[in-house]
């Protein structure tokens, strides 16, 4: 990492905002729909948790 590099607020928050939107989409999709929407909702929520192993695998310093 270069010294002195600073991220903008948008750069800091774009991944968290995307993850939050995907989580909320998953929670609501499984609630208002059935069958296939339960699967889509759970998949959306699961993919947000995928950020954890991804971070541990690629962003470990």
């Amino acid at each position: 990492m270069k010294r002195g590099r600073r991220f903008t607020l948008w750069q800091v928050f774009r991944a968290p905002v995307g993850i939050a939107m995907l989580s909320l989409f998953g929670l609501v999709a499984a609630l208002v729909g059935d069958h296939v929407w339960d699967v889509i909702g759970a998949a959306a929520l699961a993919s947000t948790l995928g950020a954890v192993p991804w971070a541990l695998a690629t962003r470990r310093q």
């Binding site: 990492m1 590099r5 600073r6 991220f7 607020l9 800091v12 928050f13 991944a15 968290p16 950020a51 991804w54 971070a55 541990l56 690629t58 962003r59 470990r60 310093q61």
Partner: peptide
């Protein structure tokens, strides 16, 4: 926590875990 996240992450890419520190 969200407000404090910003100053802590100003210099770190999302998801950084400094395991050797």
């Amino acid at each position: 926590g969200v407000v404090l996240y910003a100053p802590f992450m100003r210099r770190l890419p999302f998801g950084t875990v400094r395991t050797r520190r």
